[in-house]
Structures are given as C-alpha cells and as structure tokens.
C-alpha cells in the first residue's frame, strides 16, 4: 500500500492503495467519482477518459502511483448540475446521449479538444479528436453536432460573459 496525493477536480486528495491499482479504480472506488466508466479496460474505448494536466488520457491505463502530484479532472470536474459546462448543455440540447455509458468520457475528450480551438471545428477534426472514444448507441452524428454547438456557444459567449 502507498499513500498517494493528487488534485482531483480542484481538491487535494490522499488515497492509500496499491500503487499498481488503476487510476480509474481509485476514482471510482476510493473517491466515489463514478462518472468515469470502465468498459474495455485496455485503452480502446475511451469511456474512462480523464484529464491529467489538461491532456486527455485513459484512466484505465494510468497506475495510481503514476498519478502522484498530478492534476486530474473527471467529468464531474467539467461540470455538475446546476453548473453544467457549455459542452454538457450542448449534449443535452442536441440529444447527443442515449444509454450514456460513453458520455462522460466523450465530454472530457471534447473539453480538452475545445480548450485548444477558437474556431468551430469541422466534423473531420472532431472525428480525429474523438477517435479514441467509442459510442455504441448514437451513431456519432449528434455527438459531432453537440461539439460544434458547444464551440459556437463558447465563441459567441466567452467564459467571462457566462
């Protein structure tokens, strides 16, 4: 067992766990943050996506000991009702979620992507950015639309105005 400190969604946290436990399991079991989902457990589906220092990664492949002193953001940290992020609002507005299993991971990936762009991305650019996130329900059309809607809202009403 090791004591591991990191910042999760803006708060300093300490967990005591085996260092080779996955970050995903730590988030879900030790911290009760269950938005991030396990599906494939091997990096292929993206349902466990979280941000480490603003970069999107698969938390099912990050070992707890490697997360020491890192800044982690999960979907809960992107936004929780009633304070939803514009991406989450757009997913609701566009009906971009069905069973919802993939949604937190996609929101996190979309967050990392949109933080880096200041124009409305093309469908092709979104497909590349979200290529690591699988959805078995929606067929992606509405997801892509929702990301574009979020981008246009972000551009027309910058953060400070919201």
């Amino acid at each position: 067992m090791k004591s591991i400190q990191f910042i999760v969604n803006g708060k300093e946290r300490t967990v005591v766990c085996p260092p080779a436990k996955t970050l995903l399991d730590v988030l879900r079991e030790d911290l009760g943050l269950t938005a991030s989902k396990e599906c494939c457990g091997k990096g292929e589906c993206g349902s466990c996506s979280v941000l480490i220092n603003k970069e999107v990664v698969c938390s099912c492949l990050v070992l707890a000991g490697q997360a020491q002193n890192q800044v982690i953001t999960t979907c809960e940290g992107v936004g929780l009702s009633p304070n939803l992020d514009v991406i989450q609002e757009s997913f609701i507005a566009e009906g971009a979620t069905q069973c919802g299993y993939c949604t937190p991971g996609i929101i996190v990936s979309a967050k990392a992507f949109l933080d880096e762009v200041d124009t409305i991305p093309s469908a092709e650019e979104i497909k590349t950015a979200l290529g690591g996130n699988l959805c078995r329900c929606t067929g992606y059309t509405k997801i892509i639309k929702a990301v574009q809607t979020a981008a246009s809202k972000k551009i027309s009403e910058p953060e400070t105005a919201r």
Binding site: G43, L63, G65, Q66
Partner: peptide
C-alpha cells in the same frame, strides 16, 4: 513503465508482472 499504454495492458493480461514498476513517466 513510461506512458503505460503497453505496460498496463500487459500487466492486466498477466503477461508482465514485475515485483516493482520503475515509473519514469
């Protein structure tokens, strides 16, 4: 173990089970 994208997968599969990971990430 660096990024762990091969190492963590193989650890889960039971193929790589060292006593100690030397984390260079």
């Amino acid at each position: 173990i660096a990024g762990g994208t091969d190492a963590a997968v193989r650890m889960k599969e039971g193929k790589w089970r060292p006593e100690i990971w030397i984390n260079i990430k």
